[in-house]
Every structure is written in C-alpha cells, then in structure tokens.
Simulated scan of single mutants.
Amino acid sequence: MTTVTVTTEIPPRDKMEDNSALYESTSAHIIEETEYVKKIRTTLEKIRTQMFKDEVRHNSTNHSLDTKLEASREAGAAALRDVARRLFENYQTQSEEVRKKHEDSKHLLQVNKVEKEQKLKQHVENLNQVAEKLEEKHSQITELENLVQRMEKEKRTLLEKKLSLENKLLQLKSSATHGKRCQDLQMEISTLQEQISHLQFVIHSQHQNLRSVIQEMEGLKNNLKEQDKRIENLKEKVNILEAQNKELKTQVALSSETTRTKVSKAVSTSELKTEGISPYFMLIRLRK
C-alpha cells in the first residue's frame, strides 16, 4: 500500500490574498495527483491479484501436468511390463513349439532309421539265403555235370560194345552152323540198344535239368546283385538318417541356447528401468 503525505505551509496573512489563486491551483493539482495515485494503487492491486491468480493457475497446471506425467510413466511402465510378460510367454511358447517340432522330427527320423535298419537286416538275410541257394545250385550243377559225363561215358561204352557185337554177328551170319549164337547176339544187341536209348533219354533229361539249374543260378546271381544294390542303398539311407539325426540334435541345442538368450534379454531388469527414460521410448526400443 502506498501512502501519500501532503504538507501545507501557511503563509502570512498579508500574503494570503495574493496567493489565494496559487493555493487553489495547487490544491487542484494535489487532488489530481491523489486520484492518479489511487488509480495506480487500484491498478497495482488488480495486477497483483491477477498475478496471484496466474500463479495459482500455473501451480495447478504444473500439478496437473505432474499428475498426468506420473500417470503416463506408470501406464508406460505397466505397458512395458505387459509387453515383457507377453514376450516371455511368446518365447516360451515358441521354444516349446520348436522343441516339440524337433522332438517329432527326431522321432520320425528314429522311426525311419529303425525301419531302414529292419529292411537292411531283412535284405542281408535274403542275401545270405540267395548266397546259400547259389552255393546249392553250384553244387547241384557240378553233380549234374559229373552225372552227365558218367552217362556219356557209359553210353560210349555201350555203343562200342554194341558195335563189337554187330561186327561179330555179321561174321557169324556167314556160317550156317552158328544160328543159335547169332540169335543170342541179336538179343544182346537189342538189349544194348534199349539200354543206350534209355541212357540217351536220361542224358537228355539231365541236360534239361542242367540248363534249368543254370538258368536258376543266373537268376539267383541277378537277385544277388539286386540285393547288393538294395543293401548299399539302405546303408546310404541309414547313414543319411544318422547324419540328419546328429544335425537335428545340434540344431536343438543351438535353438535352446538362442531361445534362452532371447528370453533373458526380453525380461532383463535393466531394460525395465523407467527412471529418467520415457516409457514409450523404452517400449519402442523393446520392440526392435
């Protein structure tokens, strides 16, 4: 508050009349100045009141901004925690899916490997059976060849004997006194011819058997070659499955390690700090 003090000096009476006009002028000026001071005072009061209101409004606005900022930070931190939780759950789900997929692939590879090993075992058994049959056929062919050779030798012996008897019969026919001997020779020659014919039939049959056994042996050889190819093919497939199984185990280990690293990064407490950092900035950084 401003106080205005007015001091009036009273002149001597002999000068009062002379200065009356001046006094009236000074009083009017003082009144005018007093009104001016009042106006200034009123204006200052209004300004101070307005400043007080502005300060109150400013403080209220700052408090509201602080409240909103705190609420924004809390909302951002809550959103960040929710994102971290969902990321952790997502990584857990993905890790479980990857683990299950790898386990299924591993099981499928194991089943295929067992199946191929069983087929390989069966083909090896078939190969051994074919080898045994080949050995049997080889022995059978050898026996048939020896038998045919003996029959051929016996046939030649019978033919030689028959030829000798026929020559002897021709010699005896020239003499009438050897009629009985000629009949005996003819009967013996006829018997030899029957033996030779029968032996020839047997030799022919054995030749057919020999050709049949040789054909069977050739078929077994082809079967043996086919079994060898199948066995080699199955061995190669088993080796491939073993390599795939080994590679899958390595991938499972790497995937598990990568998943653990990602989950650890997603829930790191250092990334959940909100002090001095905008939550929305952290949320954007976490999504990178």
Rank of each mutant, 00 (worst) to 15 (best):
N245T: 03
I31N: 11
E135I: 08
K39Q: 09
V267C: 06
D54G: 01
N128G: 07
N222M: 13
N223G: 09
Q94V: 08
G276V: 09
Q129F: 05
E125T: 13
N222W: 09
Q118E: 13
L172S: 06
V56T: 12
V114F: 13
E143C: 08
T49L: 11
L120I: 03
V252C: 08
Q118H: 13
R99V: 02
K100F: 11
E247A: 10
Q129E: 10
E74S: 05
V148W: 00
Q244W: 09
L220G: 11
R48P: 00
A84D: 03
T191E: 00
K46M: 01
Q110N: 08
V37Y: 14
V238D: 02
N239Y: 06
K249D: 15
R287N: 06
Q110P: 01
V114H: 13
I30A: 07
R73Y: 08
S264Q: 11
H29S: 04
S164P: 01
Y23S: 14
L80N: 03
M187N: 01
T3A: 08
R150M: 06
M187F: 00
S174Y: 02
L192M: 00
Q129G: 06
F52V: 04
K133N: 13
R287Q: 03
Q129N: 14
Q244C: 04
Q206Y: 15
L286C: 05
L80Q: 03
L158V: 00
Q200Y: 09
E257P: 01
K237T: 12
Q208H: 04
A78I: 15
Q195V: 03
T274I: 15
S197I: 12
M282C: 05
I10T: 07
D104Y: 01
V6S: 09
M16A: 06
Q110S: 09
E135M: 12
A266S: 09
S174M: 03
N59Q: 15
M1V: 10
A77P: 03
Q206L: 15
Y91R: 02
Q227L: 15
E166T: 03
K38T: 13
I214W: 07
T26S: 12
E275V: 10
L210D: 07
K155S: 11
I40S: 06
S60R: 13
L87D: 12
Q186V: 00
K161L: 08
I30V: 11
T250F: 03
M51P: 01
A84E: 00
K173H: 04
Q140N: 10
D184M: 10
K46D: 03
S139E: 09
P12F: 10
E135H: 10
G76R: 01
A266V: 04
N90S: 13
E89I: 03
S278I: 00
Q50V: 11
E136R: 15
